[in-house]
Design a protein around this nucleic acid. Structure first.
Lengths: 210, 210
DNA sequence: CTTTATACTGGACATTTATACAGCTCCTTC
DNA sequence: GAAGGAGCTGTATAAATGTCCAGTATAAAG
């Protein structure tokens, strides 16, 4: 399949976007309107280029019949989106065991985030600003991979006194401890064993004001 | 939502089936042909019954605009995930006009992020750390809603010298300007008119190391 | 310099399509 | 038996839509 020009890619993505949002693909005139073409033909030309290059199919004479050629594993939402449960406040024990007060689920684009979602991936709502030094603010949603081996410098979710906290995992003189990325918060040197719930792999923030 | 008659259910399922197989919903004539109606109106009547009973929606006057009403809380990913194009480097003029080098698309969970994705929503890869004061770091992906009226304090994407930059929109003494959230970067007081591309509504970050 | 591909403008036209109006039968309900 | 809804026929029309033809401009390739 031939490569697309940047303009053609725009057209292609607009068509895909509309198909998902509106439920049916745009007409040529709608494409033209979107890109401020004064002529319908500009849209037609682009679509014909996309068809010639093997990206689109259509049924001649039929309104709104544009559809993407299915490339296995490529452009499909199924398989690209993972459903990740949001853990609310206090996970009782093991995160896979029983989850209290979940906020529901986030749907996460695994390709963009480059994560391999397992059954042990979960999300946490950040409270407080103890990780502000790593630009993780209160209200952010962090995606945590459970069971992953933390490396020094990783942000981890740890279980301290039955509470989950987000900290940076660091090793000093062969001994691991948890560092808060905010000088107003104390670091945590573990008494016995360190209870690491998982390693942060991604973050999602919603701009609150709207 | 009212119950359907068996005939209406047949029509509804045919529409759904066609949407999945062909990629776009059938026209009234195609419905009529499928059920061997000699009149298009038979199909119209059924569809209007389905709309009245709350099973279908459509945009008046638009070809093939039939779509099933989303049932909230259902285990359906379609309708909860929006495809947002990632704009690469330098939009020339209007964001709908010319955008170069797209990186592809992000799939975004509209329910979690609370955004209403329109065709004018796009994503930008953040370069540099000029917005670090708002905890937006380089490499982050920000979701921008174009055409939204910026309010003071909002993070906006603005067009400066043909380059897109992310800044905080502020108004001082009745005059708007753009503030960088990093003391090493200058604020921008617009010479003429301020070219606001859109307002940031969400942010997605991938933890880079893995 | 010519050719080719891309990216458009502008106008025209035939179909497709949605939609309205006026009927009809059959069945159930009152 | 009157009323009403479901299910359908038949005709008509305006709007939406696909598609063709004839151009222009620009940049890259030969």
């Amino acid at each position: 399949m031939q490569e697309l020009t940047s303009r053609q890619r725009q057209i292609f993505e607009f068509i895909q976007q509309r198909r998902e949002m509106e439920g049916s693909p745009p007409s040529f005139r709608e494409i033209a309107r979107q890109f401020r073409f004064r002529s319908v033909n500009a849209a037609l030309d682009h679509v014909q280029a996309l068809i010639a290059k093997g990206w689109l199919e259509h049924s001649p004479g039929r309104a709104r019949s544009l559809r993407a050629v299915q490339i296995s594993g490529r452009d499909d939402m199924r398989g690209r989106v993972a459903r990740i449960p949001i853990q609310g406040g206090i996970p009782a024990g093991h995160p896979a065991d029983g989850v209290l007060a979940g906020e529901g689920c986030v749907l996460v684009d695994i390709e963009t985030l480059g994560i391999q979602p397992t059954a042990r991936t979960f999300a946490l709502r950040v409270e407080g600003d103890s990780m502000i030094g790593k630009h993780i603010a209160g209200g952010d949603l962090v995606i945590i991979e459970h069971g992953m081996e933390p490396r020094p410098g990783d942000v981890v979710a740890a279980l301290i006194d039955g509470q989950v906290t987000l900290k940076t995992f660091v090793v000093q003189r062969g001994r691991p401890y948890l560092r808060a990325e905010n000088s107003r918060y104390p670091n945590l040197i573990p008494q016995q064993e360190l209870q690491i719930q998982g390693v942060m792999v991604a973050l999602v923030r919603k701009t609150s004001s709207r």
